Amino acid sequence: MKVVILAGGYGTRLSEETTVVPKPLVEIGGYPILWHIMKIYSHYGLNDFVICCGHKGSLIKDYFRNFFHRNCDFTIDLADNTLVTHQSPREPWRVTVVDTGEKTMTGGRLKRVREHLGEQTFCLTYGDGVADVNIRDLIAFHHQQGALATVTAVQLPGRWGALNLSSDRPRVVGFREKDSGDGHTISGGFFVVEPDALDLIDGEETVWEQEPMRRLVANDQLAVYRHEGYWQSMDTLRDKVLLQEIWDSGQPPWRVWQRPETQAKPRNAPNPGPRMTTDIGSRR
């Protein structure tokens, strides 16, 4: 199964860092946040990545082009132009890096990489958020639901437009703009998507989180996977500092690749009660 990562936005709320590098290359613990995201998926056996680049995308291309030498010790003999490596990186990744346009919106970026995805179910996420989501359980849940797409809902104060969740079924039932009374369930990304869902994208100006997802909702084809564990996006310098502090603590919750899978099981059974709301963001 392939993993698509949206990594083309401007990252304007993190301009202290993104004037130099694109947001997915901003480092936490000496590694780009993009690397952290890929490590999460790789832990669950997903190693085939499609990176949707845009703003400063050439730097992301350079990062992977030079990945081997960035992550190994070597001796270079400048006299005879030879290089001997002493430690090889062992990431089992296959990475397709695609320039999806400087100003293309999230849906348009997906449409541009359609040819790289084949006809199989794929995962989709943003290049600026980490979590201890159990990807294996998420994929299994998606297949159980039989929907064209599944979005992961997480607990956090709302910042973007809101979507309404069914009170008795794992489905999204509507969208609305956020208001001051919104709850704390938001979209954390970490989608699982069927290829047919891409037919709902009109063109480069299409925002995945708007019309395509509204159409999925209208057709009862957007399932919601409720994750009650850790999730954090890196939208601002404050977020970046927070993630670095958590990494420095030695026990970052998203570092699932170096600890047993002890995370809490998500509550995906029907949840009787009032309708819940979740925020969806447009993050190019």
Rank of each mutant, 00 (worst) to 15 (best):
residue 114 R to Q: 12
residue 90 R to V: 06
residue 56 K to C: 03
residue 91 E to W: 01
residue 98 V to M: 06
residue 101 G to K: 14
residue 86 H to K: 02
residue 79 A to D: 15
residue 125 T to I: 08
residue 72 C to F: 08
residue 93 W to E: 06
residue 78 L to E: 12
residue 76 I to V: 15
residue 57 G to L: 02
residue 115 E to P: 03
residue 90 R to L: 06
residue 111 K to C: 00
residue 67 F to A: 06
residue 104 T to D: 03
residue 101 G to T: 10
residue 117 L to R: 10
residue 56 K to L: 12
residue 96 T to K: 13
residue 116 H to P: 04
residue 87 Q to M: 02
residue 107 G to R: 11
residue 124 L to E: 05
residue 97 V to D: 01
residue 115 E to L: 04
residue 87 Q to A: 03
residue 121 T to E: 10
residue 66 N to S: 07
residue 67 F to G: 07
residue 119 E to P: 02
residue 82 T to L: 02
residue 79 A to Y: 13
residue 118 G to R: 10
residue 54 G to H: 01
residue 110 L to M: 14
residue 70 R to T: 04
residue 107 G to D: 08
residue 77 D to N: 15
residue 109 R to D: 01
residue 69 H to Y: 14
residue 104 T to C: 06
residue 110 L to R: 08
residue 58 S to C: 04
residue 81 N to S: 13
residue 61 K to Q: 15
residue 70 R to H: 08
residue 91 E to P: 01
residue 90 R to S: 11
residue 100 T to D: 13
residue 63 Y to R: 01
residue 54 G to R: 01
residue 110 L to Y: 08
residue 122 F to I: 07
residue 78 L to C: 13
residue 89 P to D: 06
residue 123 C to G: 12
residue 80 D to L: 02
residue 89 P to W: 05
residue 121 T to A: 05
residue 113 V to W: 03
residue 125 T to L: 08
residue 95 V to K: 12
residue 107 G to M: 05
residue 68 F to M: 11
residue 113 V to R: 05
residue 126 Y to R: 04
residue 108 G to P: 05
residue 112 R to Q: 03
residue 54 G to Q: 01
residue 56 K to T: 02
residue 70 R to L: 11
residue 121 T to L: 10
residue 88 S to R: 12
